[in-house]
Amino acid sequence: MTEQAKPLCLSGKGVTKIYGFGDRRVAAVDHVDFEFRKGELISIVGESGSGKTTLVKMLLGLTSVTEGEVYFLGERRDISSRKKLRTYWQGIQAIFQDPFSSYNMFNKIDTVLLDCINMRGGRRLPREKKIEMMTEACSFVNLKFAELTNKYPFELSGGQMQRLMIARIFLLKPQILLADEPTSMIDACSRATILDMLLGLRDEIGMTIIFVTHDIGLAYYISDTVYIMEHGKIVESGSADDVILRPSAPYTRRLINDVPKIHEPWDFAARRPAAAEATN
């Protein structure tokens, strides 16, 4: 297969995250193995509470990994110091689920974009150059920098905020983008725009996108590879066609059944757990 030929960019072996201890011990992510390949769009699908966000935070190095190893660009990830973390974050970035809590509401929008330029080593660039870069990034996501400058994030709509997050990635140009349900808090109309922009950005700077979602239909529509997560475990993975057209895990089948289909009547009986069990 051609996909096997692509080099690994992020992979993990037995990655585990345990919260709490004693009676309150929760294995949010439980011995997960994965291999994300360069240039692909990988979806991680699972219902809420299945540990997707926890996995993303571990991959970003925002929370510690309880057990297991993460490999970045084929090598064991070393984020033991602040300097190494900073270098790591030049290669891997994220967009979070809730645009409204992703911004520091006391900082102007310019600050968000300027931080990105600074992080890419553009601290000493002349002001005009910085403004030019910010304008370019904004126009990539169909926003006008001239209208946004000196505004605060809460003056924007949720869709605009999320687009600005994509503009941020445009400036940062990371190798890997972890998008944690970036469209779940956005109205359906803006959702398509944002997805288009993400895909456009992938083509523009050639990065790997790891797309986390609870929407298996959306995952099928956009991704090359799909990972299905249930209660902290990966129950199925493979190419989008394999996983979704020929699911093997019962959980995957349930997820597929849960997608409402416009042309079919809504079948309550089939969705009941007992009925789902019987069909297995």
């Binding site: 602040r82 974050w89 992703s102 509401m105 931080d115």
Partner: peptide, 19 residues
């Protein structure tokens, strides 16, 4: 998330605490 994003932007501990 805004704190996480600030970390991802490479800000120092003091800067995150203050801003």
């Amino acid at each position: 998330d805004h704190v996480n994003l600030s970390k991802l932007s490479g800000h120092s501990l003091i800067r995150i605490l203050v801003t």
